[in-house]
């Protein structure tokens, strides 16, 4: 219910897809990576993360499988599907366009 308001709708999906494009990863690692890469600027709560993951899986953009994690425990690893890669390319372009437009307005206004 309490969705992180600082993330634009759909932005989280883009972040997840981008990160999974590097390598398959489990939920906690994705959250961790987002935090690291954004230098602690973005914090994704699980309440937003897992529904988003499940939704992406449902859309067929990512797939999940159980694997043994780096600390020898069973964890659910998500990876991009073919459709997911295509979606990522499209979303990324769109994001570029959007953020450029927003910056333009913010700077010139």
């Amino acid at each position: 219910m309490s969705k992180p308001t600082f993330l634009l709708q759909g932005t989280l999906d883009l972040l997840i897809l981008t990160i999974l494009a590097l390598e398959p990863m489990h939920g906690w690692a994705i959250a961790h990576r987002i935090r690291q890469m954004s230098k602690d600027a973005l914090q994704v709560g699980q309440s937003a993360l897992y529904p988003a993951l499940h939704k992406l899986e449902q859309q067929g953009w990512i797939k999940a499988e159980w694997k043994v994690s780096e600390n020898n425990r069973r964890a659910k690893y998500y990876s991009l599907t073919h459709a997911g890669r295509k979606a990522l390319a499209k979303e990324a372009v769109q994001w570029e366009r959007l953020s450029a437009a927003v910056s333009l307005i913010v700077r010139t206004a």
Binding site: M1, S2, G45, Q46, S47, Y50, P51, H54, K55, Q58
Partner: peptide, 18 residues
Amino acid sequence: RAMGAITQNKEECRDTRR
């Protein structure tokens, strides 16, 4: 605390399953 209400979380995951 960071995880929030686990049950709510689960509910939402279920919701996405349509």
